[in-house]
């Protein structure tokens, strides 16, 4: 046990550096997933058959391919088309796109849960589509969306570990290198697991707080 703590003192700074990259990656991917997911959900909700078809097809294709394969594709295949991305960029975009599909489904459920009468009331005072979404539908959809949104956020945070396979120096990647070079598998992976937990708990609390804050009106 004593050895664990002395080793931990050495490993922790390295792992924390990885944790910083993990957080950066998660935030970047979350922003992409949220914005793009919202676009996909609105395309589906718009009632326009072409937009809806495009959105549905995209979601089904992306959902049908493992995140890992998507990351390989973006990092190793796109350069052949002249699109060169750093490992971090590829990771953020790959995870962002993969998760945009889950987010889109969350958002769609939220949008569809808003009473159709709200649409009609907004239309009947002359609102256009964009205004209706912004002022009437989305504020109400947020209520339904927040709990699954928080859940997806935590899944995304954990899935950033998959970016280690395309050499993003996030926490799992750092852990793997440390473990391989020191053979202290137990110490290293216990620390890694503990750190992921430390990152998830604030998100859980945030999700809980958001739900309380916006769950009312």
């Amino acid at each position: 046990m004593e050895k664990f703590f002395t080793d931990a003192q050495v490993y922790l700074p390295i792992l924390l550096q990885g944790a910083l990259t993990t957080v950066g990656l998660a935030v970047a991917a979350l922003v992409i997933a949220t914005l793009f997911g919202l676009v996909l959900a609105l395309m589906r909700y718009s009632g326009n058959p072409i937009l809806s078809f495009l959105s549905r097809s995209f979601i089904n294709i992306v959902r049908g391919i493992p995140v890992l394969v998507q990351l390989f594709y973006i990092y190793f295949v796109l350069p052949e088309f002249g699109i060169d991305l750093t490992a971090f960029q590829a990771g953020a975009i790959g995870l962002g796109i993969a998760y945009s599909c889950y987010m889109a489904e969350n958002f769609r459920a939220g949008l569809e849960a808003v009473d159709k009468g709200q649409l009609e009331a907004a239309q009947s005072i002359g609102m256009g589509w964009g205004q209706m979404m912004r002022r009437v539908i989305l504020p109400q959809a947020v209520r339904t969306v927040l709990p699954p949104y928080g859940n997806t956020m935590i899944m995304l945070l954990k899935d950033t570990s998959q970016a280690s396979v395309i050499t993003v120096a996030e926490m799992t990647f750092q852990g793997k290198i440390l473990a391989a070079s020191t053979f202290q598998n137990m110490t290293v992976y216990t620390l890694v697991a503990g750190l992921y937990l430390c990152l998830s708990v604030p998100l859980l609390l945030l999700a809980w707080w958001l739900e309380k804050r916006f769950g009312k009106k």
């Binding site: 009468g117 709200q118 009609e120 009331a121 239309q123 009947s124 005072i125 109400q140």
Partner: peptide
């Protein structure tokens, strides 16, 4: 629609 407005059976107020 701003000239002919509507009142609905289920009110449809913005909650």
């Amino acid at each position: 629609r701003t000239r002919v407005t509507m009142v609905f059976q289920r009110f449809n107020l913005f909650p």
